[in-house]
Write a protein that binds this DNA or RNA. Structure first.
Lengths: 231, 231
DNA sequence: TTCGAAAAAATGTGATATCATTTTTCGGAT
DNA sequence: ATCCGAAAAATGATATCACATTTTTTCGAA
């Protein structure tokens, strides 16, 4: 019998010149980030390999990378899942996001130019469109684009991979949040960030980043967690 | 011909019940952290596999994990190295260490008990012994123990793996620093940390952590980098 | 001696095979 | 019907194999 039979892993375009392992990694990562693999679902190496039509070898490598990023949890024996979120863990991850992203934004500030601000403004404008369309996948992607574009203006970048890994851990859950309370999505905070960048105001930037992360995730997330696991 | 012929990867005790892949990962990680693999040395999968007497499969998985943690750099084609440190990258990593570890220490503070303080004091006492003996490996290990013990009193821990990965990126270089300027090693800062913990003083804790990281690494590291790659 | 192209060796990657464990299935005793 | 244990199936891990690509070496022409 084939496990994971009803598993639906969205396909993504295979970048030519890349390895199978890399392709599997990107595809699984994408699936987790978009919530296509429901947290708690039982996964197996061979099940995934069959599901993707590949041999276990490259699948295991990709899965292990994801598990060392805590995007996949290796259970006691022979089973793996996308970890379920707990209230404590969620709070911890959001607080960490704020600490690292504020730090990274501050260090990006000296490298900010008008060209970058314009690029960020353009991303934010595109987000406004998708907000009204309720396109959650595009919103998630563009929101990440916004932050990534800001942080990577600092060329000596060490924190971006870490930030991405935190995003991945929050990904499947964040997605649930957006689904539940899409109307609360605060794009306005991005305008605050842009204003702080324009005036090169470190204090305002710190506050804007904190608010952006808090508003979008924290309040909504608390609500959802209180609902699903109350007493 | 066998590559990596003169490569010396210190053996470590194999934990029973663990996989070969895990063993390779731990062993390579240890070797990198202790500077046994000199940054810049050219590595190959098969070379490492031969060197360890294993098949390429588990080696490739371990190496890939390390490369996704930026402890190993996959060069343009068919070659890998432990990355060389640059001045910019070093500054970036130290600043990141301070940001994350200060944040993590603050969040650990509410969980601090007398038992923990005692445990930390004991670790610090043992360090004093190794300082006079100039045992760099033990010092490095115990210093990490000290910080890890402090941070992990918070049970909902999300930042420790990130901190460990930054340590690993700094590892081979930090080691060079200690070798060069062992006499500057500041264990006193740990006493400042302990004092701040005893009085539950957040401000003092932040300052002590910052000083501990800065003093031990930053100044010495700048000196070394200025020497090796000046004008 | 120097250079460059062809031959040889080595490498990364992924599929397959094998083995020890673990999980699941199934049938009989209570 | 319920429970338990043995047989059967599935799984993770690793070695081996095969193949395309890359690196290194070799060797003859300038």
């Amino acid at each position: 019998m084939i496990s994971n039979g009803e598993l639906n892993i969205p396909d993504i375009p295979a970048v030519s010149g890349t390895t199978t392992q890399e392709y599997v990694y990107e595809r699984l990562r994408n699936a987790i980030m978009l919530g296509a693999i429901e947290p708690g679902t039982s996964l197996t190496m061979r099940g995934l390999a069959d599901c993707l039509g590949l041999s276990p070898t490259p699948v295991r490598e990709a899965v292990r990378r994801l598990s060392s990023e805590h995007a996949i949890q290796v259970k006691d024996n022979r089973r793996m899942t996308v970890p379920l979120m707990t209230s404590d863990r969620f709070e911890e991850l959001i607080a960490l996001r704020i600490a690292i992203e504020v730090h990274t934004a501050k260090r990006a500030l000296p490298f900010i130019s008008d060209v970058v601000i314009e690029k960020l403004t353009e991303i934010d404008d595109r987000m406004d469109g998708f907000v009204s369309e309720r396109d959650l996948d595009q919103l998630t992607l563009l929101n990440q684009d916004f932050h990534r574009t800001l942080y990577t203006v600092n060329p000596a970048q060490a924190s971006m991979p870490i930030i991405e890994s935190i995003w991945l851990q929050l990904g499947p859950f964040q997605r649930q949040i957006l689904t539940t309370v899409a109307e609360n999505y605060e794009v306005d905070r991005h305008k605050e960030i842009l204003a702080a960048l324009s005036t090169r105001d470190v204090i305002a930037l710190e506050e804007a980043i904190t608010n952006d992360i808090s508003d979008g995730a924290w309040k909504s997330g608390r609500n959802l967690l209180d609902e699903t696991a109350p007493a």
